[in-house]
């Protein structure tokens, strides 16, 4: 199991806190009880990503899934814990080794309109990173960019255009081409199909499946859309308020969700109905991560919550082969 683990997320935590402004600092010196507000965006997550798999990361807004994705891609350092890429702690690498590791893991963003430089031609957007990092020489550049454009299903002659001259689906492809240009083997896709129309979304999802085979890629697929994640992933990790609540084989997890939150999510995947459906809503809202409830974060909304859930944080433990879940109910059942 350990040898095919490409990325190990080990007890990673990310806290954001606001800096006090001058008035607040002064007030504090004078004895006022003002503390900086801290948000636990990601709260001690441990997770292995196997080589060649697609790991889906789902959760609702504010659950920390994007923050985790950004930490994996090296865009923001974790406050605590380690991220090991092929056994090496990314944060401790120096010089060339650090640069190489950073190039191996690339990120594809949700909105290509804000992640692509509007004033650069697409061939420069794609070609800049490989040129700077010496992956391709200046002379081979034109051919290299054309190759990548063809790989993602764009006409190679479109390289001279600017991002605004593409449709939404094509821009998503440019974003993918940009990430592929530095020959990564791990892609973090953050809501990469969320903004697309259904028919275009299918095209881009198919492209992800094809590229995975062509380039032997590993994906971490971050999305709020359980239907999409179920389709593309081998394994699914479900997050709620910064914590991992369930992890398992994609098909099995959807078919037999263990955690009450996963059960609720699965029941709410919109499906095609040929009769009227009565929507069963989970009560309540997602609590603010600034002030999470004690014990199990889900207990105020959980239909099965009991006393223990209100005080003790459930640990993520194995409940079946290849399935982890963080719920006290698993103990009482046993």
């Amino acid at each position: 199991m350990t040898e095919d683990c490409i990325l190990k997320i080990d007890g990673v935590t990310k806290r954001f806190s606001n800096d006090l402004d001058i008035a607040e600092r002064t007030a504090r010196k004078l004895g006022a009880k003002i503390e900086p507000v801290t948000v636990h965006a990601v709260d001690g997550i441990t997770l292995d990503v196997r080589k060649g798999e697609v790991l889906g990361l789902v959760g609702e807004s504010g659950c920390g899934k994007s923050t985790l994705g950004r930490m994996v891609a090296g865009l923001t350092p974790p406050t605590d814990g380690r991220i090991l890429y092929k056994g090496q702690n990314v944060a401790e690498l120096k010089g060339t080794a650090a640069r190489d590791a950073a190039l191996r893991i690339q990120m594809i963003f949700q909105d290509p309109m804000s992640s692509l430089n509007p004033r650069l031609q697409v061939r420069d957007i794609i070609g800049e990173a490989p040129r700077v990092h010496g992956i391709v020489g200046r002379r081979e550049m034109a051919g290299y960019v054309e190759d990548i454009l063809a790989q993602v299903g764009l006409d190679p002659s479109t390289g001279k255009r600017y991002p605004h001259q593409f449709s939404g689906g094509q821009r998503a492809r440019v974003g993918i081409a940009r990430a592929l240009a530095v020959k990564p083997d791990f892609l973090v896709c953050d809501e990469s199909v969320a903004a697309l129309d259904v028919s275009i979304q299918a095209q881009v999802l198919n492209l992800f499946v094809k590229l995975r085979q062509d380039f032997d890629l590993t994906y971490m697929f971050v999305s709020h859309d359980l239907g999409v994640v179920e389709h593309i992933s081998d394994r699914i990790a479900v997050m709620y308020l910064g914590r991992l609540v369930e992890l398992g084989d994609a098909e099995d997890l959807i078919a037999r969700p263990n955690h009450p939150y996963t059960q609720a999510l699965v029941s709410q995947i919109p499906t095609f109905e040929t009769g009227k459906k009565t929507y069963q809503a989970i009560k309540g809202e997602i609590p603010s991560p600034m002030n999470p409830p004690p014990g199990c974060h889900f207990h105020p909304r959980c239909p099965f919550a009991h006393d223990r859930c209100r005080s003790e944080v459930p640990v993520l433990k194995q409940v079946a082969a290849g399935r982890m879940s963080a719920c006290h109910l698993n103990d009482s059942a046993a």
């Binding site: 449709s167 689906g169 094509q170 129309d197 259904v198 028919s199 275009i200 979304q201 299918a202 095209q203 999802l205 198919n206 499946v209 094809k210 239907g227 999409v228 179920e230 389709h231 593309i232 081998d234 994609a250 098909e251 959807i254 499906t271 095609f272």
Partner: peptide, 24 residues
């Protein structure tokens, strides 16, 4: 029909989705 087929529906896990070619 194309719209309905484009939506991932689990039963064909990991397989290619039927896609409508081109764009609007």
């Amino acid at each position: 029909r194309g719209l309905i087929d484009s939506v991932p529906r689990g039963k064909r896990h990991g397989a290619m989705l039927t896609q409508i070619k081109g764009m609007t």
